[in-house]
Structure formats: structure tokens, C-alpha cells
Computed example of a mutant assay.
Amino acid sequence: MTQTTACGTPVATGESATVGETRLEAELRRLAGSVPDPELPVLTLEELGVLRGVQILAPGTVEVKLTPTYTGCPAIEAMTSDIERVLHDHGIPEVSVVKVLSPAWSTDDISAEGRRKLAEFGIAPPRAHAAEGPVPLTLSVRCPNCGSTDTELLSRFSSTACKALRRCLSCREPFDHFKEL
């Protein structure tokens, strides 16, 4: 049996793109994941790691699972409406976005491409955490402009609660640092 994706591509139902995910669900996940984050538009929701899954519940009915970066994140409403709009535009009439709070989002969920884009955009990305080993007691943050680790904290909060404002003591430029969680 074949089915046509929202983009018009025929796919066999039941064929998996990944374990437990049909090719149609994979395509819908790609579409939902391509939505830019409203607070950091340089990143997509997939790169930020907040998109947890897409499931077809019935013909024309899709559920998208989304984990906010923190419980009270105000951007979740904009993410939800942007995902709904993108999937509606691709022929899905019924879209529900469900907030998933467990497991909680962590900065470890940001993809390598997302970290690269943050640095390229002038935001120091969070450091990746080792699965095991000691937790560092000091935080050295590399300046995204010149690469120096000689930086200072100006404010624990920046334009969003997820970022801190820092300044490089070498090039004297201020920059945002995406906090590790």
C-alpha cells in the first residue's frame, strides 16, 4: 500500500526511515524540525534539540512532541504555532503539538551543527558534557569573535534567560553565552 506525503512524494506505508518511524513521519519531522527557533532564529528546532518526535495518529492527523528548553519558556507558544503553520502548509489538516517535560531538555541536546551555527552567529555555544568524569569547577568561555578564553561575566542574563552576557578581555567585544544546563 502506498501513501502520498504532504510534499506529494509517494511512499510505502510501514516503511521505516528509522526504527519505529515511517518515511512519512520522517518527512513531517524534517519539516517540523526545519522551523527556526523564535529566540535564536539561527537554529532550527531540530538543531536546538527540542523536537522529540512526530507521529501520525490517523490520516491527516499528526502529533508533534516538543520539549521546551525550560518549563516556563515563553517561546513554546511561537514554536507551536510555527510548527502547526508549516505542517498545515504541507497538507496536514490536524496538527497537535504536545509539550513533553520528561526527559528534560539539556544543552547536550543541541546538535554539533547547532553549536557551530551559534558560534558563527557570535554566541558562545554551551560546552558539551562528558558522559562521565568530574564536573569542572571553573567555567572558561571561548570568545566567538577572537577565540580567547580570557572572558568575564557581565550579567547572568542576556536577551533571553538561556543566555548570559559576557565580554572578551582580549578583543573587548561583548557576546552572549548560551548557558549549560
Results as ranks from 00 to 15, higher is better:
residue 1 M to C: 09
residue 2 T to M: 11
residue 3 Q to H: 08
residue 4 T to W: 05
residue 5 T to P: 01
residue 7 C to M: 05
residue 10 P to V: 04
residue 10 P to E: 07
residue 11 V to D: 05
residue 13 T to V: 14
residue 14 G to A: 11
residue 14 G to F: 14
residue 15 E to M: 12
residue 15 E to L: 12
residue 15 E to G: 05
residue 23 R to A: 05
residue 24 L to R: 09
residue 29 R to F: 11
residue 29 R to E: 08
residue 29 R to A: 13
residue 30 R to Q: 14
residue 30 R to I: 04
residue 30 R to A: 15
residue 31 L to D: 05
residue 33 G to D: 07
residue 33 G to V: 07
residue 36 P to I: 03
residue 37 D to S: 08
residue 39 E to T: 06
residue 43 L to Q: 10
residue 45 L to T: 02
residue 45 L to R: 02
residue 46 E to Y: 06
residue 46 E to N: 08
residue 48 L to C: 02
residue 49 G to V: 03
residue 49 G to C: 03
residue 50 V to N: 00
residue 50 V to H: 00
residue 51 L to K: 08
residue 52 R to A: 01
residue 53 G to H: 01
residue 54 V to D: 01
residue 55 Q to N: 10
residue 57 L to N: 10
residue 58 A to P: 02
residue 62 V to E: 01
residue 64 V to S: 06
residue 64 V to I: 09
residue 70 Y to D: 14
residue 71 T to V: 13
residue 73 C to F: 03
residue 75 A to T: 08
residue 76 I to R: 04
residue 77 E to H: 08
residue 81 S to A: 14
residue 82 D to T: 11
residue 82 D to N: 14
residue 84 E to A: 10
residue 85 R to Y: 12
residue 87 L to V: 07
residue 92 I to Q: 01
residue 96 S to N: 10
residue 96 S to Y: 14
residue 96 S to M: 15
residue 97 V to I: 04
residue 98 V to E: 13
residue 99 K to M: 11
residue 100 V to S: 08
residue 101 L to R: 03
residue 101 L to Q: 00
residue 104 A to P: 07
residue 104 A to Y: 02
residue 105 W to L: 03
residue 105 W to T: 07
residue 107 T to L: 11
residue 110 I to L: 15
residue 111 S to P: 07
residue 112 A to Q: 04
residue 113 E to I: 02
residue 114 G to F: 07
residue 115 R to A: 02
residue 115 R to T: 05
residue 116 R to M: 06
residue 117 K to V: 02
residue 120 E to P: 04
residue 121 F to W: 15
residue 122 G to I: 00
residue 122 G to H: 03
residue 126 P to F: 01
residue 127 R to C: 08
residue 128 A to N: 05
residue 128 A to M: 00
residue 132 E to G: 09
residue 135 V to I: 09
residue 136 P to E: 09
residue 137 L to W: 08
residue 139 L to Y: 04
residue 140 S to L: 15
residue 141 V to T: 10
residue 145 N to C: 07
residue 145 N to Q: 09
residue 146 C to P: 02
residue 152 E to P: 05
residue 154 L to Y: 04
residue 155 S to C: 11
residue 158 S to K: 11
residue 161 A to P: 12
residue 164 A to F: 15
residue 164 A to M: 12
residue 165 L to R: 10
residue 167 R to L: 13
residue 168 C to Y: 11
residue 171 C to L: 13
residue 171 C to E: 02
residue 176 D to A: 15
residue 178 F to T: 09
residue 179 K to T: 14
residue 181 L to T: 14
residue 181 L to S: 14
residue 181 L to P: 06
